[in-house]
């Protein structure tokens, strides 16, 4: 049974490790999906907010010439109470309009990098400041003169991801317990023959050892006829060979000493 429990423990631990890995990877995947959905929504919202600004830039007006820019941005912000700020920035990244009275002078370096990488398309990135989503404002000649940046809190997403991790971990623990019980039954029947074979090896070795100490007291030999009886004979043959060699060494030593 020692082998059985050892294998059962190994299988259970491996299963637990695999489920832990799976929960980790699945949580990452959920975070990806959640971020993707949020990013797409922010991109749609940014695109919609950018439209009136683009109408102005397409006839050659500067971004700052758009009337009611504050209201346009505020309307976008009110689509979701969680939105922290909606900014309009110029080609150099300077924020020229914002729903946030304490908005920074320029967009963050992370926003710059994400915008560069998107090369004119809609973009989103998760940063320490929160989730950023944006779109460029283009002229009639398809040149970028600035863009819209929406700042969304990252904390809510993190809470959702942590909740998902906890839910999956709980499910994994329950499944691991069930699998451990199922595994024990499966191994009992599936590995029965193999475990009996290894147990027979153990028994043969024990019989051989018992024979060794009984022979010292000239007790009757241990008699057993098992399928592994051959192993005991091998052990006995190796032991005999060892003793014979040891005796030969003793004899040779005595002969050498004379």
């Amino acid at each position: 049974m020692q082998l059985f429990w050892r294998i059962w423990a190994a299988v259970t631990l491996v299963n637990l490790a695999v489920l832990s890995l799976f929960v980790g990877l699945a949580t990452l995947q959920f975070d990806n999906i959640n971020s993707g959905l949020l990013g797409e929504r922010l991109a749609v919202l940014a695109g919609r907010t950018a439209a009136p600004f683009e109408s102005a830039t397409k006839i050659g007006l500067p971004l700052s010439a758009v009337r009611n820019a504050d209201a346009l941005l505020e309307r976008a912000r009110q689509t979701d109470d969680a939105i922290l700020a909606v900014h309009v920035f110029d080609g150099d990244g300077r924020i020229i309009q914002s729903t946030d009275p304490s908005a920074p002078n320029t967009i963050s370096a992370a926003a710059f990098a994400a915008r560069e990488a998107a090369a004119g398309g809609a973009w989103q990135r998760e940063t320490a400041d929160g989730f950023l989503g944006g779109v460029d404002i283009l002229t009639a000649g398809r040149e970028s003169v600035g863009g819209i940046l929406i700042v969304y809190p990252g904390g809510g997403n993190d809470t959702g991801v942590r909740a998902m991790a906890a839910e999956l971990a709980l499910a994994a623990i329950a499944v691991a317990f069930a699998a451990a019980a199922f595994g024990a039954v499966l191994m009992r029947f599936g590995l029965g023959r193999q475990i009996r074979m290894f147990e027979a090896i153990e028994t043969d070795i024990a019989d051989f050892e018992r024979q060794a100490w009984r022979s010292a007291a000239t007790a009757p030999a241990v008699t057993r006829t098992e399928e592994t009886g051959d192993l005991r004979q091998r052990l006995a043959a190796a032991e005999d060979r060892y003793r014979a060699t040891g005796q030969a060494l003793t004899n040779a030593g005595e002969a050498g000493g004379q």
């Binding site: 299988v11 695999v18 839910e167 994994a172 499944v175 699998a179």
Partner: peptide, 12 residues
């Protein structure tokens, strides 16, 4: 065991 466990957790 692993496939059944992962499918069960995957379903969840």
């Amino acid at each position: 065991i692993v496939t059944a466990s992962v499918i069960a957790v995957g379903f969840a």
